[in-house]
Design a protein around this nucleic acid. Structure first.
Length: 803
RNA sequence: GCCGAAGUGGUGGAAUUGGCAGACGCGCUGGACUCAAAAUCCAGUGAGGGUUAAACCUCGUGCGGGUUCGACUCCCGCCUUCGGCACCA
């Protein structure tokens, strides 16, 4: 027997698969289809680390298995290649981002190919390819035409020393990552997408898809739908009011003051009435330096300033109450103002205690001297004239009706979800294909002018006015209006990286179509994606954005179904040996190239899957890699013990059927670690048995093939089993062959196992009792005791309770 | 802080979803083979007690309570770690 030499056989089989186009997807519509999708990577300069192949191997296993089960499988790969790190690299090293991307993609592709994934490379897409982003721009224009894209003033992070806008990532502890300068919030006119218009559908349609529960929960909570009221508080002595959103109008009698966001427009409007404007402005400056995240931290000390000279009137008590500003109220949620009910809200309570504001209990049950009473679900209203004695639920209804009758409030659904800030003042993104004309305002480019290509420039730094670098190319910016032919200027903002990744799965279906995003018939056959696996870190942004775009495309008749992904699962992260996140700065990054070089791609794949629960994060341990290599060596040596025979060995038959069942089910439920453990167990049984038939080995190789495709193909070939392994049928199992007639049943006395009895699978309690009494170990625990209760679970356990 | 997860031997993890805790692998210990080493093979391996050896007993799934004949699994309250928090992707 030859030596197991992964270097040789892996390259060999990768070439054979490629030459024979084994994994290219056909259009055989008679077969059931299986569209398996993994999140396409961002081709960073660092290349792959061992975290990347984890989800890819998982879905590769499913793709390979489904092919053997007779499915027409689409398993594609591409590049999410626009983005900030490439641009920053380009700025630093004076290399065009296109060139950086080209190199990175080439490296990634070579690495992925060396792992032996069964991707259909003929369908590769790249978001930075003009033929691709033509359609990203096309979708944006459609959104614009349907009124779902609009411009609005939004705060951005502004480095006061570099004079450029910064990504959140570039702001470290309130300072600019590049220069350490102070970062403040500054408003900028930004393109926004109305994802909020789809909020209800994005929640409700989750009922129709098979996503793991924690993904659904995260999406629902992120959208944050709540039912409540907009309540008007009249401004004292003014013909104007301050509106708040509240989910608890029943606590209105307990509203003893109001808090508005530091950016609330009211402050500007009534600046002449405000007696302490200096103090207010100072606080506004203070708040502008904080992110929303820092502002809402509960643990921190509450800060705020009373707005003197302005008062509001509580609509039910008619009492005048003060208005404060504080950074715990955000302009981006609700109306940017709250009615504070300190007795029943923790933050309001802390604020009231600190600034000595009145606290009025309106729901009975807590001790408001000690803390806010917030767990009010079963409470009863007090100190609330109109609704005293009512339950919270009844009180909400009654007071809401009362307010609506008097035009003091309106029932409304509110969302935490905010519209999507779509503009970036950056170079390396899709240009927004709009033109501004004084006469016609914003005008989209006609379809035949797409793609609007990114112009070549030398300097990628944003301008010091905060505009994108494109604004400096006057020739490019100056254009004519497509509508009236007059003078016009191009939009210089680009799109965020999310744009290209919001619809890439569609392009795989028809990657070279020049006339439309994808052919209708093809979309009808392939959609929806049957199984989409990706990281939990993409649950709220990418996944939601792409569901939003898909729904929009459904609305305009481009795609045939409401949801893009029928099923969504999620993998855990692979950590470094020190159990910390792999990163260059921590120096714990493991490169798959090194693993392949030393142990082979099959070992890498097997370890990636055997390492632990697929859905959990887990540290990478090189010792474990060696264990998988040893396992494959043992598989290789099975060749030594093969004897002829087209039937399963009698002694192994039951185990083989059991393993087929276990492996088949475990692959489908992402329990790759236990599938491999079962294969290891069967291998041990093979070796204990001393010999195996050809049939035993054939089935074994097929079951292992999705995990370790190269070694199994090679053994199949050496054994001359005929054809290629990847063309074989997935084995079936026979339930009758697995069933055991007699089982070893544990017998407990007072809940502790004291022995086991061999008992027929269908035996009854009487039989169990007889056998248990015959068993000496069990007998010992029954002597001199009285049986007061017996629990017998057929086929499982027998428990005797004695006294 | 808010939302979502996780916590089991020296170690990665397993446990048919309330029924023998620790499958499978790693590591370690001992043995075989070898001039020797590596590789390979065989045996052992949760902790404590007990025995010449076994049997056997007690404890044990982050911490504290609870439900149950029976809890890693369910309930209540904590602690710790990880993912996300909207311009990293």
């Amino acid at each position: 027997m030859t030596k197991y030499d992964p270097k040789k056989i892996e390259k060999k089989w990768q070439n054979i698969w490629e030459e024979n186009r084994v994994f290219e997807t056909g259009e055989d519509r008679s077969k059931p289809k299986f569209f398996a999708l993994v999140e396409f990577p961002y081709p960073s300069g660092e290349g792959l680390h061992v975290g990347h192949p984890r989800p890819y191997t998982a879905l590769d296993i499913l793709a390979r298995k489904r092919r053997m089960e007779g499915y027409n499988v689409l398993f594609p790969m591409g590049w999410d290649a626009f983005g900030l790190p490439t641009e920053n690299f380009a700025i630093k090293h004076k290399i065009h981002p296109r060139e950086v991307t080209r190199k990175n993609v080439a490296r990634f592709k070579k690495q992925l190919k060396s792992i032996g994934f069964s991707f259909d490379w003929s369908r590769e897409v790249n978001t930075t390819d003009p033929n691709y982003y033509k359609w990203t721009q096309w979708i944006f224009i459609k959104l614009f035409e349907k009124g779902l894209a609009y411009k609005r003033e939004m705060p951005i992070n502004w480095c006061s020393s570099c004079k450029i806008g910064l990504a959140n990532e570039e702001v470290v502890a309130g300072a600019c990552e590049r220069c350490g300068g102070e970062v403040v919030r500054r408003v900028k006119n930004q393109w926004m997408l109305k994802i909020t218009e789809y909020a209800d559908r994005l929640i409700d349609d989750l009922d129709s898809v098979d996503y793991i529960d924690r993904v659904k929960a995260q999406q629902i909570n992120w959208i944050g739908r709540s039912y409540g009221m907009d309540v008007k508080f009249q401004l004292s002595g003014k013909d104007d009011y301050l509106e708040v959103f509240t989910t608890r109008p029943d606590t209105l009698y307990g509203a003893t003051y109001m808090v508005i966001a530091a950016e609330h427009p009211l402050l500007d409007e009534y600046r002449d009435d405000i007696e302490n404007m200096d103090e207010v402005v100072k606080y506004q400056e203070y708040a502008s330096k904080k992110s929303d995240f820092e502002r809402t931290e509960l643990s921190k000390e509450k800060t705020g300033v009373e707005v003197k000279g302005l008062k509001a009137i509580n609509p039910v008590t008619q009492k005048e109450i003060p208005i404060w500003i504080s950074d715990y109220v955000l302009m981006s949620y609700g109306t940017g103002a709250i009615m504070a009910v300190p007795a029943h809200d923790t933050r309001d309570w802390e604020f009231a205690k600190k600034f000595d504001l009145p606290i009025i209990e309106v729901v009975k049950g807590g001790d408001i001297e000690k803390e806010a009473y917030t767990d009010t679900e079963s409470g009863v209203l007090i100190n609330s004239e109109l609704i005293n004695g009512l339950s919270v639920e009844e009180a909400i209804e009654k007071i809401s009706d009362w307010l609506e009758e008097r035009d003091l409030g309106t029932r409304r659904t509110n969302y935490k979800l905010r519209d999507w800030i779509f503009s970036r003042q950056r170079y390396w993104g899709e240009p927004i294909p709009l033109v501004y004309c004084d006469k016609c305002k914003w005008v989209p480019l006609p379809e035949d002018e797409l793609p609007l290509e990114l112009p070549d420039i030398k300097n990628y730094e944003p301008t010091d006015t905060g505009e994108s670098p494109l604004a400096n190319i006057r020739d490019w910016v100056k254009t004519t209006c497509p509508k009236c032919g007059g003078e016009a200027e191009r939009e210089t903002d680009t799109m965020p990286q999310w744009a290209g990744s919001s619809w890439y799965y569609l392009r795989y279906i028809d990657p070279t179509n020049d006339n439309q995003l994808a052919d209708q018939e093809k979309l009808k056959y392939w959609l929806p994606v049957d199984w989409y696996n990706g990281g939990m870190e993409h649950t709220t942004l990418h996944l939601l954005y792409s569901r939003f775009w898909h729904k929009f495309l459904y609305d305009i008749g481009v795609v045939p179904c409401k949801e893009p992904y029928a099923k969504r699962t999620s993998h855990g992260m692979i950590l470094g040996e020190n159990s910390e996140k792999m990163s260059k700065s921590r120096g714990n990054v493991v490169n798959p190239d090194d693993i392949i070089d030393e142990y082979g791609a099959d070992t890498l794949r097997a370890y990636e899957m055997f390492i632990g629960d697929f859905e959990q994060s887990v540290p990478w341990l090189e010792d474990g890699v060696r264990g998988c290599r040893r396992y494959l060596e043992r598989v290789w040596r099975l060749q030594d013990i093969v004897v002829s025979g087209d039937e399963y060995s009698e002694e192994l038959e039951a185990s083989i059927h059991k393993t087929i069942k276990k492996v088949t089910e475990d692959y489908e439920t992402l329990k790759f670690n236990t599938a491999i453990a079962a294969l290891m167990t069967l291998l041990n049984e093979f070796n204990d048995n001393g010999s195996i038939t050809k049939a035993d080995l054939k089935t074994y190789l097929i079951l292992l093939n999705p995990v370790a495709p190269h070694i199994t193909e090679e053994i199949w070939d050496i054994m001359d089993f005929g054809g290629m392994l990847n063309e074989q049928r997935w084995p079936a199992y026979d339930e009758d062959k697995i069933k055991e007639d007699v089982i070893e049943m544990p017998v407990q006395v007072n809940g502790r196992v004291r022995g086991t009895i061999n008992i027929g699978i269908d035996a009854d309690q009487e039989e169990a009792n007889r056998l248990a009494r015959e068993n000496r170990a069990i007998q010992k625990h029954l002597e001199g005791k009285q049986i007061i209760k017996e629990i017998f679970i057929p086929g499982k356990i027998y428990n005797l309770v004695v006294k």
